[in-house]
Design a protein around this nucleic acid. Sequence first.
DNA 1: GCGCTCATGTCAGGTACTGACATCACTGTA
DNA 2: TACAGTGATGTCAGTACCTGACATGAGCGC
Lengths: 186, 186
Amino acid sequence: MVRWQPGARERLQAAALERFAAQGFDGTTVAEIAATAGLTERTFFRHFADKREVLFSGQDEFERLFVTGIAGSAETDPMAIVAAALEAATGFFPDERRAWSRARQGVIDADPGLQERELLKLSGLAVTMTRGLRERGVDPTAAALAAESGVAVFRVAFATWIAEGEERSLAEVQRAVLAELRSLVR
Amino acid sequence: MVRWQPGARERLQAAALERFAAQGFDGTTVAEIAATAGLTERTFFRHFADKREVLFSGQDEFERLFVTGIAGSAETDPMAIVAAALEAATGFFPDERRAWSRARQGVIDADPGLQERELLKLSGLAVTMTRGLRERGVDPTAAALAAESGVAVFRVAFATWIAEGEERSLAEVQRAVLAELRSLVR
DNA sequence: GCGCTCATGTCAGGTACTGACATCACTGTA
DNA sequence: TACAGTGATGTCAGTACCTGACATGAGCGC
C-alpha cells in the first residue's frame, strides 16, 4: 500500500491553474488548492515559496535554455547572440503547450499580484542574459541593452503566439518580431 | 484642542522608510510603523492599499510629468518626444532629493517584494507613455518600443544619479545615457 | 528484522489585510 | 447658540497567508 500518490507538485500546479481560472486568484485559498490535489496547505508551502509561485515554478529550465543558447552561439555581434538564444528558448513552448500557456496567461493578466511576479521573473531573465553576454566579452552597457531588447522581443512574440487565431509557431512569430525591431531601429 | 495631528500620510511614509532602513522591510510590522507615526494599524491601511505601497505613493505625480511632457512636446519623431518627456520628468528629482532617493532605493534593492512593486510601477509608466505617444499619432509598435526605451534610459540614469560619488544632476546624467543609447543603436 | 530517510500531516502562532461600527472635533446653518 | 452632519480615526473581530516544531509511517539499505 502506497502512502502517498506521486507527483504532488504537479497535482498542486494543475489544481491551482484550474481553480484560478474558475474563481480567480483572490477567490481561491491555498487550502482549497491543496484539498483539490488531495494534500494539505502545509504541503503546498513546502513545494512553493508562496501562493503565486505555483504558477511560475519551472522558469529555471526556461532560463537555462537562454543561457546555453548564449554560450553556444558562434556569433560575436550582441544582438546576433541574443537572436540565437531566443531561437533556443522556443523549445520550451512547443505548439502543444499553446492552449495551456493561454489559460495560464489569462489568469496572470487578471491579477496585479501575478503580474508583479511575472515582471520580476522577466527582470531576472534580463539580468541572467546580461551576465551571459558579458562573459562572452560584450561591453556592459551593450550587454544590458541587448538583453533588455531580447526580453522585449520575447514578450511581444509570446503575446502574439497565444493570441486568438494565431497559428504560427513561437519560433516563426519571434523571428518576425525581431525583424520588425531591426527595421524600426534602423 | 485638536483631535488629530495633520499630515498623517506623510508621517506614516517617513516612519516606514526610517524603520525599513533600520530593520529591513520584513523585520518591520505595520503596527510598528503606525505606532511610530502615532497612529494605528487600521489607519495605515486606510492611507495605503498594502504595506509595500507606502514606499511608492506619489508615483502618480511623477507619471503626470511624463504625460504632460509628451503632450507638450513640439517634436514629431517618437524618440524625440520621449526625450522631451524624460527631460520634463527630471523635475521630480531635484538634487535635494538625492539622499532621500538613495535611502529609499537601498530599501527596495534589499527586498524582492519591493522590487516586484517597483517593476509593476515602471511597467505602468511604459504603458502610459505608449498611450500618450499613440495619441500623438505614433505607430503602435513604434510607440511601445520608444516608451520601453525611455523607461530603460530613466532606470539607468536614475541608478547612476544615486550612485556613490555622482554629482551631476539627473537631467545631465539622463542626457548622457540617452546619447549613449543613440550611439549604440546607430 | 531494524533503524534511517523523507514526504507528509498536525498544531500553534504571527502578520497582513478587511468589514462593521463607534467616537468626536470641526463646520455650516437655523 | 444649539444642533445635525461630516470625516478622519479608533476598536474589535475575523480571514487568509505563511512558518516553526514536532509527529507519523511506508520504503529502503544493511
